[in-house]
């Protein structure tokens, strides 16, 4: 069997060799040259990368055309096979380009989706941020409003306290306003025994109420001024007025007024408010005055 194979093979090979020899001098037909060129172009282009099956078909077709050329030379069949081979190569090329275009389209769409997704997320984040800012501003406005309301209420309370304190003072003493100072006049008859600088018990009750009113109203400073009538020696009157002012100061401080903002001064008989010629006038001159400088910026 093997020997028979060998014989037939030698016949085929010698026959093919004879045909090759016959064709070797004839140039390939234009169709075959075009088919070779088309195949090379397809192989090195997108078909080589993306359409291997089509390229393989083209290769087979070109192989058949080449074989026909080798076997038969420039025959119609060779030309037809070369024509088909060229078209196969062009077909592979077109399909490779089709797949490349589809790939480009897919990539572009993915890019668009990614950008649109990012834009959606960013827009959502901006919206959330804006909502948070609006909410924060609303809270801040509410807090400011609340603070303003509290301050207004506190101011109103302080004013009411100050007014009430002043009203209370008016009921127990002569109160008058001189420029920005409030002057509270307490009669010496009520506070001290004649010629004495010791507070009477009733004076203490009245001073308790005055001290409370002053604390409620608030003040910057108080000067306690002592005054006498003109009876008796001048120096004695001066000393008595100072001692009485000091006694009132000491009592007010003992009731909670700050010592560093309350001072005592004795004027003696030099600042009468009425003539010393009548008992009523002298009684009016014997007095203690509290000169109150109000707290800066209102009550405290």
């Amino acid at each position: 069997m093997k020997a028979v194979d060998m014989v037939f093979r030698s016949i085929v090979v010698s026959g093919t060799a004879g045909l090759l020899a016959a064709c070797a001098s004839a140039p390939p037909p234009a169709e075959l040259v075009s088919a070779r060129t088309a195949f090379e172009r397809a192989r090195s282009g997108e078909a080589g990368r993306r359409a291997p099956a089509d390229l393989y078909d083209a290769q087979l077709a070109l192989g058949r055309a080449e074989q026909a050329y080798l076997d038969d030379g420039r025959t119609d069949e060779t030309r037809d096979l070369a024509y088909v081979a060229e078209r196969r190569a062009q077909l592979a090329e077109a399909r490779g380009r089709l797949l490349a275009a589809q790939s480009r389209e897919r990539d572009a769409r993915l890019q668009i989706e990614a950008i649109e997704d990012r834009q959606r997320i960013e827009a959502q984040q901006r919206l959330v941020g804006a909502e948070q800012r609006v909410e924060a501003e609303r809270r801040a406005r509410a807090a400011t409003q609340s603070e303003l309301t509290r301050e207004r209420s506190a101011r109103l309370d302080a004013e009411q306290r100050a007014n009430a304190a002043l009203e209370s003072l008016r009921q127990m003493a002569n109160v008058r306003q001189e420029e920005d100072r409030t002057i509270i006049t307490l009669s010496g008859e009520v506070l001290f025994a004649s010629g004495q600088a010791t507070l009477l018990p009733i004076a203490q009750q009245r001073l308790d109420a005055v001290a409370q009113s002053l604390v409620d109203a608030g003040f910057e400073s108080i000067t306690v001024e002592g005054h006498t009538d003109s009876r008796g020696p001048f120096a004695q009157n001066e000393a008595l007025s100072l001692h009485r002012a000091q006694a009132v100061r000491a009592y007010l401080v003992s009731r909670g007024l700050p010592a560093d903002r309350v001072q005592a001064v004795g004027f003696g008989e030099v600042r009468p408010v009425a003539p010393n010629t009548s008992p009523e006038g002298r009684a009016n001159n014997r007095r203690v005055e509290l000169v109150v400088t109000p707290a800066r910026g209102g009550a405290r």
């Binding site: 380009r97 089709l98 480009r104 769409r109 890019q111 668009i112 649109e116």
Partner: peptide
């Protein structure tokens, strides 16, 4: 193939715009 080329070009153009 021409149709696919056109679709790819349109998609690329839209991607550039986006």
């Amino acid at each position: 193939q021409a149709e696919a080329d056109e679709r790819a070009a349109n998609a690329a153009s839209r991607a550039r715009t986006v």
